[in-house]
Amino acid sequence: MIISVASGKGGTGKTLVATSLALSLKHSHGVVLLDCDVEEPNDHVFLQPEITGSKAVSILVPKIGEDKCTYCGRCAEVCTYHAIAVLGNNVMTFPQLCHGCGACSYLCPEKAISEESRETGVVEWGHSDGVGFIHGKLTVGEAMAPPVIRKVKEYASNDGTVIIDVPPGTSCPVVEAIKGSDFCLLVTEPTPFGLNDLCLAVETVRELNIPCGVVLNRAGVGDAGVQEYCRKQKIPILLTIPLDTEIARLYSRGIPLVEGLPEWGESFRQLLKRVTELVDERNRDTEW
């Protein structure tokens, strides 16, 4: 089963929930945590995993063979991303703009374009205390997170429980990370900011046809807007974590909640149980 942990708004507690959920299951078989927030990955701060392997993530960018090139301009014409320009007897490429679609090299009438790898990030894997761990890191200065996210997901095996820590927002990196999940946990906080961004996140998972439930973090501040919304939209609130100085301090020191306050372990195992029931229910419904 694949469970993704997303939020819309940043800083609501995705990392806290993803790491504690993974660690609470460490005695069961085959738990893997994927940190797909490749722009700002933080799960490793909490898990301190032993990294056993890594691989560069590259995209294929064009390399112009000037000896064959006739400067016909076909490559520049087919490149939607303006990553190639032909000016007189000069071809310029802008690798940072290239999405690696391969159209230019395939469509060059002179076969003058080959492709070379350009590194945009890295995937690392290992384990921590019985939990499998994989994360990706986008190179600083690079713009495109989705290719790195795709690679992280390729390294995950599908048996057992896979937990995906998703980047904030609602655009392409989020979709890339959530795609293919059996369930999505949406972590939010009870403020108008939390509610506004929860609504966007709910629309996103519904667009992808993935069932969802809410984890309400920092309960006790703010207002009741999130609860009212969840009731109206029939979205279950599966776990409530209070605003608590001790929890915040543990987080600040990089200590997972279930390690600092072990009594939370049972709450996270119950959370997984509820999620499993909801996924089973839904699968039964679709079979019928």
């Binding site: 700002e40 701060v45 600083v140 200065g141 987080y251 020191r253 990089g254």
Partner: peptide, 21 residues
């Protein structure tokens, strides 16, 4: 930023982006 290990780690990377540009 905020004085959490996550916040500090992320500050370092966004500082790198600002320097890069």
């Amino acid at each position: 930023t905020e004085p959490t290990l996550s916040g500090m780690h992320d500050l370092e990377r966004v500082l790198g982006v600002c320097r890069h540009f």
